[in-house]
């Protein structure tokens, strides 16, 4: 099988309130999949369940053939899952450098430090502004810089599977566009699978390979990004343009 991630029949919720119903998902390596849907559709819930913050009530999550259900977040991180949460999750009290180092602290063993340092150097190459602000504290950064830091920190882990929750929220269109473009580059260079939650349907579908539309916790449509963008009925019903 060629899939990197296979999700089947996933159900999850908060306490007694179910949110996700029977979600199926297949991600191939080296692809970007956009998750689209209205506010409250369950997109964040889906990401939290995949990264292990939320325990599903039913379903199967396989990453490269390995069952993730029951594994705590830390174990999933070691297996190559990186989740950039809604609101970015930059730790304001820590410096840029410390935030980045944190991204590689899960590594154990002899070469861990060297590999993390190399990954951090790459991130600084990728995001020039961060390199100039290594000693700044997270809360001293602009919104765009924070997004770079959050994304860069996830990349320090060199993940196989990257989950991004609304990376362009609150960013100027130019900055958002450059981040989107970067995701494409990263996909091609690293072969990782990206699951991208976005409110900005146009720009998400523009860079994505696949698209999934979620409504009330169910996948109501899926397909090639280009096809979704062209589907008039879908656009009217769920995507609002």
């Amino acid at each position: 099988m060629t899939e990197l991630l296979e999700v089947e029949g996933l159900c999850a919720g908060y306490g007694a309130a179910p949110v996700l119903h029977d979600v199926d998902l297949r991600l191939a390596p080296g692809t970007i999949t956009a998750v689209l849907g209205a506010n409250g559709a369950g997109k964040t819930t889906l990401l939290r369940t995949l990264s292990g913050l939320l325990r599903p009530s039913a379903g199967r999550i396989d990453l490269t053939g390995r069952d993730l259900i029951g594994l705590p977040v830390e174990r999933r991180v070691m297996l190559g899952v990186a989740h950039v949460p809604e609101g970015r999750g930059v730790i304001g009290e820590l410096t840029v450098q410390e935030n980045l180092r944190l991204g590689g602290l899960w590594r154990k063993g002899a070469g861990a430090r060297r590999e993390t340092d190399a990954a951090i150097a790459e991130v600084y190459d990728l995001f020039e502004p961060l390199a100039r602000r290594r000693g700044y504290h997270g809360h001293q950064l602009s919104g765009g810089e924070r997004q770079m830091l959050a994304l860069g920190r996830a990349l320090v882990a060199r993940p196989k599977f990257l989950l991004l929750d609304e990376p362009s929220l609150g960013l100027a269109p130019v900055v958002a566009a450059s981040i989107m473009a970067l995701l494409r580059t990263l996909r091609d260079a690293s072969g990782m699978a990206v699951l991208l939650v976005e409110q900005n349907v146009h720009s998400a579908l523009a860079i994505a390979d696949e698209g999934v539309v979620v409504s009330l916790g169910r996948v109501v449509a899926r397909g090639k990004a280009a096809d979704l963008q062209a589907d008039e009925g879908l656009r009217h019903a769920y995507l609002g343009f």
Partner: peptide
């Protein structure tokens, strides 16, 4: 420090 300031983010980065 990460666990103290932002427990959930720390978990997402593999911190126990």
């Amino acid at each position: 420090r990460a666990a103290a300031f932002a427990p959930e983010v720390a978990r997402l980065l593999g911190v126990r």
